[in-house]
Simulated scan of single mutants.
Amino acid sequence: MNGNRTHDAVPDWTIDRMPELDGATIVVTGGNSGIGLEAARVFAAKGAHVVLAVRDVHKGEDAAAGIGGSTEVRHLDLADLGWVRAFAAGWTGDIRVLVNNAGVMVPPLGYTKDGFELQFGINHLGHFALTNLLLPHVTSRVVTVASSAHRSGTIDFDDLNWATRKYGGGAGGYEQSKLANLLFSLELQRRLTASGSSVLSTAAHPGMASTNLMSSSESAIMTVFATVVVRLFAQDAAAGALPTLFAATAEIPGGSYAGPANKREMAGAPVLVGRSDAAADPLIAARLWAVSEELTGVPYPAVQMASTR
């Protein structure tokens, strides 16, 4: 699905439509705040064992204490591939759903421990490596949280680290990383299908949600935007989490992209939404996958998937 079309496959979807999760393990990266926390709260209420994979364990423990149900906190720093590998190496047991939710938005130009531009490194490459390392454990679905900002993004394969381009306030870096999220989700589904796995790759975006993501920016313009415009027009984090929950549990096809139903996809009940032509391009997706494997050193796992054992 591309362009601006919105598909009301499941109109007026609410969390009441979610199945009971009966002890299934769900991993949510960045689950200590914002839409990740709200999604974790609902997963736990539906009976899942929710693992909050977070950079700050103390904040994660504080968040988990307010969720209720069965929760666990594990340290994960997506800005350090060593920590990503350690997290995956320490994992045992099945994962019903992996939610790639954590991210940064328009920080000053900076780099991960492995030398990648921060937004591309955390939002895309960190989750790329994590997903491929955990995939043998995943039994149902991988959900990647993207953004409508992907529509303005381009993948500059000659300068992924913004070494020669003007970084400005970082908006271009964010748009590139969110486009990468959707291309990753697309190519992951192609590979899952080709390998005969029943695991699905889906994606979601929250619309305009009032979270701390933009307010964490050091850009004065973004801070004003977050504190004034977002508070006036955004839905709350709980509503912003609905597309993620929909993408994680609704009966939808692999490769689907969920977002809010209302005009401009800013708010409303979750439905299947369109993506830009670039985000639907299988050739760009395949090229990005190959580059991501090279940069992270993490390939698609050549092992039998948990769901097909």
Rank of each mutant, 00 (worst) to 15 (best):
M1Q: 14
T6R: 13
T6I: 13
V10W: 13
P11T: 03
P11E: 06
T14L: 07
T14P: 05
I15W: 04
D16A: 01
M18E: 04
A24I: 13
T25S: 10
V27Y: 10
V28E: 01
G31N: 01
G31L: 02
S33W: 01
G34H: 05
G34D: 07
G36H: 06
L37E: 02
A40H: 07
R41N: 13
F43T: 03
A48G: 01
A48Q: 03
H49V: 05
V51K: 04
L52F: 13
H58F: 10
K59G: 02
D62K: 14
I67M: 06
I67K: 09
S70F: 00
V73F: 11
A79H: 10
D80A: 13
W83I: 10
R85G: 05
A88F: 14
A88Y: 12
A89W: 09
I95G: 02
V99R: 09
G103K: 03
M105P: 01
P108D: 12
P108W: 00
Y111A: 09
G115R: 12
L118H: 04
I122V: 15
F128Q: 11
A129G: 00
A129Y: 07
A129N: 07
A129D: 07
P136W: 06
H137G: 14
V138F: 15
T139W: 11
T139G: 15
V143M: 00
V143C: 07
T144M: 09
V145T: 11
S147W: 07
S147D: 00
S147N: 01
S148R: 14
S148W: 05
A149Q: 06
S152G: 14
G153P: 03
T154A: 12
A163C: 11
G168Y: 15
G170W: 04
G170R: 07
A171K: 12
E175K: 14
A180S: 12
L182A: 13
L188S: 14
Q189D: 12
R191W: 05
S195C: 11
V199E: 00
T202E: 00
T202S: 04
T202Y: 00
A203R: 08
A209G: 02
S217V: 13
I221H: 12
T223V: 14
T223N: 12
V224D: 13
F225S: 10
A226S: 15
V228K: 14
V230Y: 11
F233W: 05
D236S: 09
A237H: 05
T244S: 01
F246K: 03
A247K: 08
A248W: 09
A248F: 05
T249R: 08
A250P: 11
G254Q: 04
S256A: 14
G259R: 09
P260D: 05
N262S: 15
K263Y: 15
M266K: 15
G268A: 09
P270Y: 11
P270C: 13
V271G: 11
G274N: 15
P282D: 10
I284G: 01
L288Q: 06
S292C: 02
S292T: 02
E293H: 02
T296Y: 09
P299S: 11
A302F: 09
Q304T: 15
A306G: 03
A306W: 02
S307V: 00
R309K: 12
